[in-house]
């Protein structure tokens, strides 16, 4: 997994609430057996009309083509557990999403892919949304180490993050490798379980 330490880039505004994972990547793109190349389907129905013509979606506008940060409305990523949603965002260059709240599974999936989801109070999201509206000038820096966002005018906002998730993201750690180091504890748990609950 790619490390996340400090990110500077254009922030794109997506002022919609309840952006669900079907909206982030519709089902026809879930038929892949790979993790890559999914940006093609990112926000597909918001980006393309029925004839496949671009509709001028924010990430297709010249100012936001290289956006690395997305600022969105509350309950971002609700719905399905599809990890294709963060894969598609990552494939399109998005490394950080800022919203007032996230759905649990999506939030979790981001961390497995080197994406930092930041939940902030609505007023702060509103200010960053205003910043993001400035097009190519909407350059924002996100520092995970200091847990601080710096806006285009130098305004700073602190954010909260679970310390273990921060540690894994900053070091690009493989969760499975970490858990396999606890194999003896898993062995002991299973042995006890076989005794106490032999039907399992």
């Amino acid at each position: 997994m790619q490390k996340f330490t400090r990110l500077t880039g254009v922030a794109a505004p997506l002022p919609m609430v309840n952006v669900d994972t079907d909206k982030i990547i519709p089902k026809q793109f879930l038929k892949t057996i790979k993790r890559t190349g999914l940006s093609e389907g990112l926000f597909y129905e918001l980006r393309f009309d029925e004839d496949g013509n671009k509709k001028g979606f924010v990430l297709d506008q010249p100012a936001y083509r290289d956006a690395k940060i997305l600022v969105a409305g509350e309950n971002f990523g609700c719905g399905s557990s599809r990890e294709h949603a963060p894969w598609a965002l990552l494939d399109a260059g998005i490394r950080c999403i800022i919203a007032s709240s996230f759905a649990d599974i999506f939030y979790n999936n981001c961390f497995k892919n080197g994406i930092l989801p930041i939940a902030l109070p609505q007023e702060q999201v509103d200010l960053l949304m205003d910043d993001a509206e400035r097009g190519a000038n909407a350059v924002v820096t996100v520092d995970l180490e200091t847990q601080e966002i710096t806006g285009p005018d130098g305004g700073r906002v602190q954010f909260e993050i679970d310390p273990f998730r921060k540690h894994c993201l900053m070091n690009g750690l493989d969760d499975i490798g970490l858990s396999l180091q606890k194999a003896n504890k898993i062995d002991a748990f299973e042995a006890k379980r076989r005794q106490e609950q032999p039907w399992l």
Binding site: E83, N109, I176, K182
Partner: peptide, 16 residues
């Protein structure tokens, strides 16, 4: 509960 694909892999490998 539902999980993402990275967690599917984690469960397959570790049962945790």
């Amino acid at each position: 509960f539902g999980i993402g694909t990275s967690e599917v892999e984690h469960v397959l490998a570790t049962q945790t």
